[in-house]
């Protein structure tokens, strides 16, 4: 185990998805798929040792960020976090996702790391996981039997475990198209400005004036997987959003989360701030319905 020397493995470099799936059906459990490698290679320096790495680097055409008003947003498996940060349409329409990419890691890891990699990494603290879950959407998987879509609500099964089968490649992340009154917000609490989240939260609202017609609220690092806070959503849905209602929602959030102690924070703290963070992201989401996000002055390098 060494941060200087990687363990020995065999590199698979398919040039199209069919070949990739073929290789995965052959090597199954012994292979790790690599997109940007910013998570996988770190993992391999601290103890993971897959026999094969299947790199998506040579497959052309997976690095897209595409939007249309009907189907929503599609992010290809090789689209980097930097691409998402630079995307005007994401910044305009999927503010939570944009912000979760903007604060994700460092310029260097954003230049290599992918959004889909973040989703597949299935870390409960994953920033894009949290934002994507709030937006709502699905992961498109391709396996020997063809393509299938798994709703994000069903995608993460447990700590670092997803619904992807060993012979499948994740091809893209799809997020639902915004409706009228759409807004979203994301926030994370960290030890230093740049850091993995101690806790993160994201909300997507569909507002009708002051009334919250629909809401999706997601929270990370408070359970083995990124959580949908459905009880809290119920508090808001169909109601006029007032400070009092937000307090009620925060109380529901504190009941729904199941945090633990680790090096980054404590269970007690996470539970305490979960409500605060939920309130803030809902407020941000509501604010963003009206206009462009306040962070667009920033652009990643």
């Amino acid at each position: 185990m060494s941060s200087r020397v990687l363990p020995v493995f065999d590199l698979l470099l398919p040039s199209n998805l069919e070949e990739a799936v073929g290789l995965l059906s052959q090597h199954g459990d012994q292979a790790a798929v690599m997109a940007g490698g910013t998570d996988l290679l770190v993992g391999m320096k601290v103890g993971m040792s897959p026999a094969f790495i299947l790199s998506l680097a040579d497959i052309q055409g997976l690095d897209y960020v595409a939007f249309d008003a009907k189907h929503g947003l599609r992010i290809g498996a090789m689209a980097t976090l930097s691409q998402v940060v630079d995307s005007k349409v994401v910044n305009d329409k999927y503010h939570a996702l944009w912000y979760s990419a903007f604060t994700n890691g460092t310029p260097q890891t954003r230049n290599a790391g992918t959004v889909v990699g973040n989703i597949l990494r299935a870390s409960p603290a994953g920033d894009c996981c949290c934002a994507a879950l709030a937006h709502g959407g699905s992961v498109l998987l391709q396996g020997p039997a063809g393509k299938r879509e798994v709703d994000l609500d069903e995608f993460w099964l447990d700590y670092r475990k997803t619904a992807r089968k060993p012979d499948e490649v994740a091809v893209e992340l799809k997020l639902k198209a915004p409706e009228h009154g759409y807004g979203s917000g994301f926030a994370a609490l960290t030890r230093s400005y740049q850091d993995l989240a101690k806790i993160n939260a994201a909300a997507r609202v569909i507002m009708d004036g002051k009334v919250c017609r629909k809401v999706r609220l997601a929270m990370g690092a408070v359970a083995p997987i990124t959580l949908r806070l459905k009880e809290a959503e119920k508090v808001l849905t169909g109601q006029e959003v007032t400070d009092q209602l937000l307090e009620q929602m925060a109380a529901a959030v504190r009941k729904e989360v199941k945090p633990i102690d680790d090096v980054r924070s404590t269970a007690e703290y996470r539970r305490e701030v979960a409500g605060v963070l939920a309130k803030r992201v809902v407020q941000d989401a509501i604010k963003s319905v009206a206009g462009p996000c306040p962070y667009s002055c920033f652009m990643g390098a």
């Binding site: 770190v42 230093s192 400005y193 090096v263 980054r264």
Partner: peptide, 16 residues
Amino acid sequence: CLNNTFADYRMFGPSD
């Protein structure tokens, strides 16, 4: 030791 890396032992960065 639970934090013998820069990922787990944080310091004030440029923006802090």
